[in-house]
Nucleic acid binder design. Structure first.
Lengths: 302, 302
DNA sequence: GCAGAATGCTGCAAAATTTGCAGCGTGAAT
DNA sequence: ATTCACGCTGCAAATTTTGCAGCATTCTGC
């Protein structure tokens, strides 16, 4: 699409931070690019870039326009898929951002299930922390986001949500492994492994221990749920995860215990999209499937 | 905006029905236009127009694309207004489609009230039957629609709705003017004036009389609510209207009576917008004001 | 059944637009 | 003070778009 070059125009210049640099990136002269931008600003009626002595930067109007162009692009992609659809083949692409905790078990199964029905549909999965996943929605980098305890809900339209109590994970031969009713303070008395700041589980732990005498005192802090899960097999430590990231049976050698609500608030796992956006058919249908699966999961847990 | 010419390109050709005619309309050669369309189809990857021996017509893919372009355009307009907004002046334009019944009293007051607060905002009001008003939403010709008993609700996102019982309107000296409790069959026994087919009031009347012995037998059928309202002053007839179209006090010389629900289903007046669309600031704010006013109106009536 | 008219499409040259090159003035960093 | 990178502009070359004329095709009216 010819006129979509306006997109990469604004986008690339904004990213490069200067017209000359952007021009070099896209293999044209700076003067050509310069004039294109001037023409664009002229047609739009306002300045889009702030001219700094060191280059250019988007001004608020430019941010607004860029956002519009992004949405435009995403919607054109949707139309494309829809057109491909009506010519027979079920095509499409689903892009989803999700937290690490959801990644290893739940999502692969869901994707393969969907692709079994629609082999023409492709997927991209972006593993991000919750803030980045939300941001990707608003820049139309992802169609869907599956996140635990989101932060900004402004542009986030909730498709479905299920409660997810934080669970303690430990080795089968851990001293606490036999206690059927586990308390948070017991866990924290032991060596424990917790997620780094950007994760929702950490956030809930911080909330629960704020002002308490027994605070967080992790022996390991990590940004990999996989690592944390496996670590408890090596040292007699406790790590914290949410049920959806743990296989229904649980891995061999591990014990999983829900922590009671009075110790730790129950978190929420949300499936969401960009507010007000019309998703491509494939993404919308996949979202439906996810929502059903999540609700089923919640039903089974209760 | 340069690249928006693609819009009038597709739009005009579709409307003109042939490339040559469209080219003449826009004062260029048919060959130039022809090539633009070919290039566009090439870039888009699919045919957009059906080639008929007598001209061209949009194919389904083209319809989809046109719809996308319309939405794109409307959204760009929103961005424009938003940009104008942040440079200080509160500007904007609100376009609303409404039924005749709402037109004469309610809407003028609401518009003037809004403009008193924001003099920079302009309005266009399109008086349409409910089908046309809904259609205008989906083609982005109107931002808002205020309609009585809508038909297709597919693309119609309800902002607010209030019940509106149909009222009988007659002259003060009409034989039925003194009866406090009016029945529909009494009205239909008298000469009556009813709206033409496309209106919601007519629809409700049809529903209520279907299969009844005492059917509709209008002495006048009209598509002007103004005419019908005034007609009862000349002949001893009864006309039907909804409360919002009647001044609170009622015009001089007229009597208004609500018809009971068991005779005639209570209709609904809905304020709505195109599903999923982000309205321009001005329209969104005006919609809020309208919603508040409608709810207040409903509260006062009950 | 046949001329006439209208349609979409294409080769080629003219017109218009975009690009590249070189250079100017400006403000920040060294 | 000098250097450097930046945005911007005049002018000519390169590219793209347009107009013109003409082709094949299909429908219309007689």
């Amino acid at each position: 699409m010819k006129y979509l070059q306006t997109f990469s125009l604004i986008h690339d210049v904004a990213r490069a931070g200067s017209i000359r640099k952007a021009a070099e990136d896209m293999n044209i002269t700076s003067s050509a690019l310069n004039r294109q931008i001037q023409r664009l600003e002229d047609e739009f009626g306002t300045q889009i870039f702030e001219r700094l002595p060191r280059g250019v930067r988007l001004n608020p109007a430019g941010e607004l326009l860029l956002q519009h162009i992004r949405s435009q692009n995403a919607d054109l992609e949707r139309v494309r898929n829809q057109v491909a659809d009506l010519s027979g083949v079920r095509r499409g692409h689903v892009s989803i951002g999700c937290s690490q905790g959801v990644n290893p078990i739940f999502l692969p199964e869901q994707i393969s299930r969907y692709r079994a029905k629609h082999p023409g549909v492709t997927f991209s999965v972006r593993v991000r922390d919750r803030a980045a996943a939300e941001h990707d929605l608003s820049t139309f980098t992802s169609d869907l986001a599956l996140v635990f305890e989101p932060i900004h809900l402004a542009d986030f339209e909730i498709i479905t949500s299920i409660p997810q109590p934080v669970c303690a994970v430990m080795a089968k031969d851990h001293p606490l492994a036999d206690k059927p009713r586990l308390r948070l303070r017991d866990c924290l008395a032991m060596p424990h492994v917790i997620p780094s700041n950007e994760y929702g589980v950490r956030h809930l732990l911080e909330l629960a221990t704020r002002g308490k005498s027994r605070g967080l005192n992790p022996v390991v802090e990590a940004d990999s749920f996989e690592l944390m899960r496996r670590y408890v097999l090596y040292e007699k430590a406790i790590s914290f995860q949410i049920p959806i990231g743990l296989g229904s049976g649980g891995d061999a050698g591990m014990v999983v215990r829900e922590l009671p609500e009075r110790d730790l608030p129950i978190g929420t796992l949300l499936l969401g999209q960009m507010r007000g956006r019309t998703l491509p058919v494939a993404s919308a249908k996949f979202a439906l499937q996810l929502a059903a699966a999540l609700e089923e999961l919640d039903g089974a847990r209760a």
